[in-house]
Design a protein around this nucleic acid. Structure first.
Lengths: 231, 231
DNA sequence: TAGGATTTGTGCGTATGTATT
DNA sequence: TAATACATACGCACAAATCCT
């Protein structure tokens, strides 16, 4: 194998994708929390490039609604609040529904194994002495990336991903504030993974997406109630 | 009036928005048809800026799926084909449905007048001796911009717009190829506008969106049939 | 195969805008 | 109010990639 694959030097596009995915993940996992200010120069130095190609990534992230640049002030991670994200959640529920209605496809063996593994890792997280919100975020992101492949509809995938990044950030922010318990949510999430895999095992994709949708809905309600308790 | 509004110099963000909207419109109306090659230098000179701010706009348009840049080759308008746009159309139909279910709001007087005016202009287009596809595209874009304001759900608006730009280009391309008749389609579209305004007049937004959805569906079917005739 | 023309990508110095002292 | 510090925005020269002769 690998006979005709000499070590390809990284192309400009590859580098762009790498930095883009990296920053996207950091924002999603709250390594850069909402409102944080990013330094173009510091990031450029970290990735070993000049400001020019880095700024290209920032422009893309601004188009995706994750950043906002203001001349003379700085580049900031966009804020997320429960009130502003209500329409986002409403739409996400509908897209979760569409996931099982537009071009559904049976997940392959690798994807199946991956989802089972994520379920196990969620169990470990729930059992750990001090469950970290960031770890929950990682598993949440991993499961989303796997599960949303059940649709072949490319634009639906893109839109679902964009809404996921927004709602996921609010979810982790709520955890970081201690308004919901990480271990409890990890256990609930582990249960969801199992519930979703059961219909998938017999090829019932539609049922899997409806269960997924119901869990998104319930987690939103739990978050609203947790926020209400603190008001 | 206009007492406290001295002539504000155009800010960097304003210029970005202006060039972005301009290029977006040109691509949508097929002034730059699918596959066309754009020159960074020529566009920069036309807008009176250097390549740097212009490239920022191109990066954004690439993120929106309208352009694709390849180093050493050029910047190209993305292709649209009936086969590739089937999933796009399927999703657009669903979003058209959501338009009337997520945060619907009654259009104000100005918007109402605008939609009526577009209906009249469509009649004029259909009656004109040589109806131009580009004029149809302008009115199609204008009506979309007006109609999709019936939802207050911001991300739904953004996603609907993105899908509109894709499907609209295929529609105009089909017209340019002579596979459908501009006058006939203008008349049908004029009829749709009237059909949509009727339920809106009595506050029945949901019915308006369902009629709108059915017209998107029917126009897609007509386009498929027209393409089939030429195969 | 090689070389030149053309196009996008990159690096850097400077301009412009904002906030603070 | 003015000046200073610092951030992003811009323009330009050059590097890298591609295509064609």
């Amino acid at each position: 194998m690998d006979l005709d694959s000499p070590p390809q030097p990284e192309t400009a596009r590859d580098r762009f994708e790498r930095i883009h995915t990296d920053l996207q993940t950091r924002i999603c996992l709250l390594d850069y929390p909402p409102g944080a200010r990013l330094s173009e120069q510091a990031l450029a130095e970290e990735f070993g490039v000049s400001r020019t190609p880095l700024r290209r990534v920032l422009v893309r992230l601004e188009g995706e609604g994750l950043l906002q640049s203001v001349q003379g002030v700085g580049t900031f991670v966009t804020e997320v609040s429960l009130e502003e994200l209500v329409p986002v959640y409403e739409l996400r529920l509908e897209l979760a529904d569409l996931l099982g209605r537009l071009g559904p496809q049976q997940p392959d063996a690798g994807l199946w194994a991956r989802m089972q593994e994520i379920g196990d890792l969620l169990g470990e997280l729930a059992d750990s002495p001090a469950p970290e919100g960031r770890r929950f975020g990682e598993l949440n992101l991993a499961f989303f990336r796997a599960f949303h492949q059940i649709t072949t509809n490319a634009p639906l995938r893109v839109f679902s991903e964009r809404l996921f990044f927004q709602t996921s950030r609010l979810w982790l922010k709520t955890m970081a504030a201690g308004e919901v318990d990480v271990a409890t949510e990890a256990r609930i999430f582990q249960h969801e993974v199992g519930e979703v895999l059961r219909p998938l095992a017999i090829g019932d994709i539609r049922s899997a997406t409806l269960i997924h949708r119901s869990h998104i809905s319930m987690s939103f309600i739990r978050m609203k109630r947790a926020a209400g308790r603190l008001d």
